[in-house]
């Protein structure tokens, strides 16, 4: 790791539901352009951590920083709303179940937020949509509705929608888990292309092969703590911790 100030800085993140502690004092620094994978069994807290980064699941303790801005600020409701809506525009998020807006066309899905929040003109918004769709190979379907697309196509549009906000970082929450196996690759290709452009990314995933080939760093989480972290060639080939070894044995062969 370099000495420069981290791009994303998670400091002592802690979250509990009642007495159940799902994140136990987690710290994580991601520098600009870095690609981090978070792996681990379900219930390990990896999705919760990712969703805390844009305050969808607010932490009960600790701080999240994006560059020089604190994300999870304790503010009066109105000010918090203003603040978080600004911050979220800089953090792109891609969900397992796409969460495309079914009542809007592909074009409208992409242009809605830029038009509303950045006030860009219809013409510029259209150009933006075309650019982003070209990037994910979905230009042909610009005037389709989500219900007319396959799962893989939906996810590519969802990625384009997030990218259209020109985010500083992209969060992927099991972006391919809900897809039929034959549709996974098209989404992976889009993510790989993003990696080559040095987009800062945090990826929660079940796909060890993908994590190994794309990511700079891998975190293995279990029961709310980071058990082990390091470069993929160490974590996947030579894990030190027994829990990591057990998990990988199940998932690499499975």
């Amino acid at each position: 790791m370099t000495n420069e100030q981290p791009f994303i800085d998670v400091r002592h993140a802690q979250k509990s539901y009642g007495t159940l502690e799902v994140l136990k004092d987690i710290s994580l620094q991601v520098s600009k352009g870095q690609i981090v994978a978070i792996i681990g069994p379900s219930g390990s807290g990896k999705s919760t951590l990712l969703r805390a980064i844009n305050d969808l699941d607010p932490l009960t303790g600790g701080e999240i920083w994006l560059e020089d801005k604190q994300v999870n600020k304790d503010l009066p409701h109105r000010q918090y709303e203003k603040h978080i809506n600004k911050v979220r525009q800089e953090i792109g998020m891609v969900f397992q179940h796409f969460n495309l807006f079914p009542h809007l066309t592909v074009r409208e899905n992409i242009t809605l937020a830029p038009k509303m929040l950045k006030g860009i003109s219809d013409k510029d918004a259209d150009k933006l949509a075309e650019e982003q769709l070209a990037k994910v190979g979905m230009s042909e379907r610009i005037d389709y509705y989500p219900s007319q697309l396959s799962g893989g196509q939906k996810q590519r549009v969802a990625i384009a929608r997030a990218l259209a906000m020109k985010p500083k970082v992209m969060l992927f929450d099991e972006a391919t888990s809900a897809l039929d196996p034959e549709l996974v690759e098209e989404v992976n290709l889009v993510m790989k292309a993003l990696a080559e452009e040095h987009m800062t990314m945090i990826i929660v995933t079940h796909e060890m092969g993908f994590a190994e080939s794309v990511c700079d760093r891998v975190l293995f989480m279990d029961e709310g703590v980071v058990v082990e972290e390091g470069p993929p060639e160490i974590i996947f080939k030579n894990p030190k911790n027994e829990r990591t070894q057990n998990f990988l044995r199940k998932h690499l062969n499975g």
Partner: peptide, 25 residues
Amino acid sequence: KGQHEGARTLGLSRGQTIRKIIVPQ
């Protein structure tokens, strides 16, 4: 619920989300 999250992660406010995403659907 994902619709709400999808809109909020783009930076839409609660009111904008209700008006543009939730009610039309």
